[in-house]
Write a protein that binds this DNA or RNA. Structure first.
Lengths: 187, 187
DNA sequence: TGCTACCTATCGAACGTTAGGTAGTTGCAC
DNA sequence: GTGCAACTACCTAACGTTCGATAGGTAGCA
């Protein structure tokens, strides 16, 4: 089916992009992961830029719903904040993969404009959720938590990047623990 | 001269790698930046892996001496810590470039082993300096500051990455300020 | 003579992309 | 309910470009 193939391409492309970036996302490897030929991808996406934008869009949409699920699952904002870093930990668990948005932020200069837009949307989704949840946890206004939200997002992304460069997930855990003890993120 | 050409290649390659990564560091563009032809690079470096390793090695060596200079220049450890993030800010000032080590950490999976080693050395140089300087600032043992040193390094790298994705250096400044107010880095 | 520091020309592989073809299904006129 | 046109989802084959890398040559200097 058309819809399933499109989704299979997006899922495989996401996996590749989290390990090798937008530049490392090549059609022959991607097609073989899906079980089709490279030319067939053009039946679903008109160009690599369109595919990249679709991948990044799907990525932030998934993250947005994961974050909402986290709020419901934990039951309260403080517990949700404590669990936030687990979303980034999960990437490392899957063969030391990086957040798609972090990788593409590094590749920023070489990204098509449509992809840049979706990468920025991922940051916005995270920062907005963090600001909202921080506000709910301490009873303050959302806008008053924007700076802190950005700081948490950047710090967790940095921790993931460092852990990846050591191929050691315990480095990530130790960094999150340091952030906690210094008061950057919720204890 | 041989020595000057080698240095010119390394300097130009560093600039390219900070903007486009190891994968985006191509011989034709690099050669034209130096003012020679692509094939001539092989007179100085036997392969791209060797060049990449030399670039990363020179990068951490430069950073190591910059950090020692910072200690001498500021006169005391606390002031040196306050100024630490300026080293990362300087990359962003130069056409929104990223720390070479951050970019290569993202590209980790596709890096030749010799390059991986030098990338990790960069982290070690930073973390060692931070741990040493934190210890000097608060009169504690170096080993007791290792975790905090890593946390500062990761957080500053994350701030640089986020600022790059917005092509906005004020995002970096705001993040460093947030880190200060939350107590992660020295006020 | 031999070394250094480059050059031109080219290699094979990989890249995104396109042209054009082929099964299988669907929809509709008769 | 049969025939056929149109469409979907793929295919093979190849395009032009770019990549890192190599072979072999040359000018200048010791």
């Amino acid at each position: 089916m058309s819809t399933n193939s499109r989704e299979a391409i997006l899922a495989a492309a996401t996996d590749i992009a989290q390990a090798h970036g937008y530049g490392g996302m090549n059609y022959r490897e991607l097609a073989s992961a899906v079980g089709i030929k490279a030319a067939s991808i053009y039946h679903h996406f008109p160009s690599k830029a369109d595919l990249g934008a679709a991948v990044a869009k799907r990525y932030w949409e998934t993250t947005a719903s994961d974050l909402e699920a986290l709020l419901i699952e934990t039951g309260d904002p403080t517990r949700a904040l404590q669990a936030y870093s687990r979303i980034f930990r999960r990437s490392l668990e899957r063969e030391n993969r990086l957040c798609l948005c972090s990788f593409m932020s590094a590749e920023y200069d070489d990204l098509p404009d449509a992809v840049k837009t979706e990468v920025q949307a991922f940051t916005d989704v995270n920062v907005d959720w963090l600001a909202r949840t921080l506000a709910a946890a301490n009873g303050s206004r959302v806008e008053a938590n924007a700076a802190k939200a950005r700081a948490i997002f950047a710090a967790v992304a940095g921790a993931q990047l460092l852990a990846r460069s050591r191929a050691d997930i315990s480095v990530f855990d130790a960094l999150i623990e340091s952030y906690r003890s210094s008061g950057l993120i919720a204890a």
